[in-house]
Design a binder for these strands. Sequence first.
DNA 1: ATTCTTGCAAACCTTTTGCAGCCTA
DNA 2: TAGGCTGCAAAAGGTTTGCAAGAAT
Lengths: 154, 154
Amino acid sequence: MIQAPLDHDALRKALEAAGLRSTSQRLAVYDQLAAMPHHPTAEEVFQAVRSSLPKISLATVYKALEALVAIGVVGRLNAADGAGSARYDARSEDHYHFRCLRTGTIHDLPTEFDPKLIEHLDPLLAEDLRRQGFQVTGYRLELLGYRRTDGRDA
Amino acid sequence: MIQAPLDHDALRKALEAAGLRSTSQRLAVYDQLAAMPHHPTAEEVFQAVRSSLPKISLATVYKALEALVAIGVVGRLNAADGAGSARYDARSEDHYHFRCLRTGTIHDLPTEFDPKLIEHLDPLLAEDLRRQGFQVTGYRLELLGYRRTDGRDA
DNA sequence: ATTCTTGCAAACCTTTTGCAGCCTA
DNA sequence: TAGGCTGCAAAAGGTTTGCAAGAAT
């Protein structure tokens, strides 16, 4: 099971530590995001959050997501191939994604394997890159394919 | 050195084989794209192509890029993290990218290493994924970091 | 009390589309 | 010649911004 989402106290502290205020909108956005298994778009988060905060606006959802990304408790994922909208992820640490080429949805991958993939990359390559002026600080691995249609997928 | 870009004859054949026509705009877009080392946005391609075809329109550049992606001679890369614009790549086969977190530019990585990374992924995981309904057909690996500022980068 | 945040609407940017005229096969 | 393609302009998403009123510290 992925990772325990932050509770309100932890999230309040994280916001506070960054000099940001903890508002009901930010908490609600985080809660809804953490509860959605397929990393949703801002619009999807908006629709979900309306159930608890009917008067929230889409702009506020964008701002809240931006704040959560800024403090590092939420990640923003790129769109399928440059088109469409961004997707958000309540996990902050490195992990892998599976992107369904049919629906565009993104799923978390179990991370029992290879948590430090980059250490396996050819050390010679790393040396080579450094020499060329590339300082590598992280990586992103995404598996592509098709998800059996049987439920949570659209 | 990466890969030889297609010459006009090869590109004409590729377009023809797909039932598409070879136009000066499509050839020019491909040429400019292949000549740019840091995978450019549609707008950047547009500006570059104007030097040879001053009356080309941005819409045509988008359509040409779409055609080139459709026949598989150009790849479309996702935007940095969901925001901004897509970037294009005149290479079609699997390879790796380095994304500069400062400028957003994307560079090709030398591919001397690990051309079949996915085969190294835990076979157990692959089995696990299949059981869960994920059919993996490809993957995307992107290194993130900072590029020494010394030239082609903005 | 002060400063940050919200919500609304308008602005913005990237990408797509409709259509008349042009060009390729 | 026929049908795809271009170029223009307008439309369509998705995301950001300006600002007055409201909320958090």
